Simulated assay, not measured.
Amino acid sequence: MTTREELRGHWNEIRGRIEERWSQLNSSDLDGLEGKTDQLVGKIQQKTGETSKDIRKELDSIIENLSQSASSMAGKMGDTFNEAVKNSKEQFSHASDAAREQYEHMNESVQKGYREAERTVRKHPAESVAVAFGTGLIAGVIVSLVWRR
C-alpha cells in the first residue's frame, strides 16, 4: 500500500509516471496532492473512472518500480565507488613506489657526493680549508650587503 511518506519522497518521479499512466490528468490536477494518497486516488478515480483498488495497485507498482530503480542505481554507484577506490589505491601504490625509488636514488647521489668531498678533503686538506674560508667570506659579504638594504 502506498504511504504518504513514499508519495512525498518520490513525488516528482511519481507525478511524471502518473501523468504518463493516466493521460486524462493534467499537471494542475496533481497540484497540492503531494503526500495525500486518498485525495490522489480520488482525483484519478474522478478523471478516469477506474476503481480505487486498481488505482492503488498501480500506484504501488509505480513506487515499487521507482524503488527498484533507485536500488539498482545505488548498487551501480556503489560499484563505481568501489572501482574508484581500487584505482586510487593502485595509483597511490604506484606513486608511493616511484617516490621511494626517487628517494633512494637521491640518497645514493648525496652519499656519493659526500664520499667524493671527503676524499678530496683528505687528498688536499690545505686547499680545502682555503676554499671553505673563501666561500664563507663571500657568503658573509653577500649577506651583509643584503641586510644593509
Rank of each mutant, 00 (worst) to 15 (best):
Q91R: 04
N107D: 15
T120M: 10
E34P: 01
Q45T: 11
S28P: 02
L33V: 04
S88P: 00
V121R: 01
R4T: 06
N65I: 04
H105Q: 15
A74M: 02
D97Q: 04
N82V: 06
S71C: 08
Y114N: 15
E101H: 14
G113N: 07
D38V: 11
A117F: 15
P125G: 06
L145N: 15
A132H: 09
E19M: 00
I142Y: 13
S144Y: 12
L66E: 06
L145S: 15
E34M: 04
V131Y: 14
S27W: 02
E58R: 00
K47L: 03
Q91L: 07
S23Y: 00
T48E: 01
E64A: 02
D38S: 12
E58V: 09
D29M: 01
R149A: 10
L40G: 05
S88H: 04
E127N: 12
T51D: 15
G78T: 03
F133I: 12
R122G: 13
D97S: 09
T3N: 09
T2L: 05
S88Y: 06
R100P: 04
E6I: 00
E50I: 06
T2M: 04
R56T: 02
R100T: 14
M1H: 07
K43Y: 01
R119Q: 15
A84E: 05
D54I: 13
D29F: 04
G49I: 07
S69Q: 10
Y114A: 13
V131A: 14
R115H: 14
I44L: 05
S72F: 11
E104A: 11
R100H: 12
Q24D: 14
T80I: 11
S61Y: 06
S52L: 07
S61M: 08
A139L: 09
H105D: 15
I62G: 00
K43M: 04
A132I: 09
Q46H: 11
L66A: 00
G136S: 11
Q39N: 12
E19N: 03
V41W: 00
S128K: 02
N65A: 06
K57R: 10
R115M: 14
T51H: 07
K47V: 03
A117S: 15
R17P: 01
I63H: 00
K89D: 11
T37D: 12
I63K: 01
K112R: 13
R122E: 15
A70R: 05
S96I: 03
E13L: 01
A130S: 11
D31P: 05
D79C: 06
E5Y: 02
I63V: 14
V110W: 08
V146T: 08
K86H: 05
K123H: 09
M106Y: 14
Q91H: 09
E19S: 02
I62E: 02
G78D: 06
Y103I: 11
Q68E: 11
I14G: 02
N82W: 07
G75V: 10
E50K: 10
L66S: 01
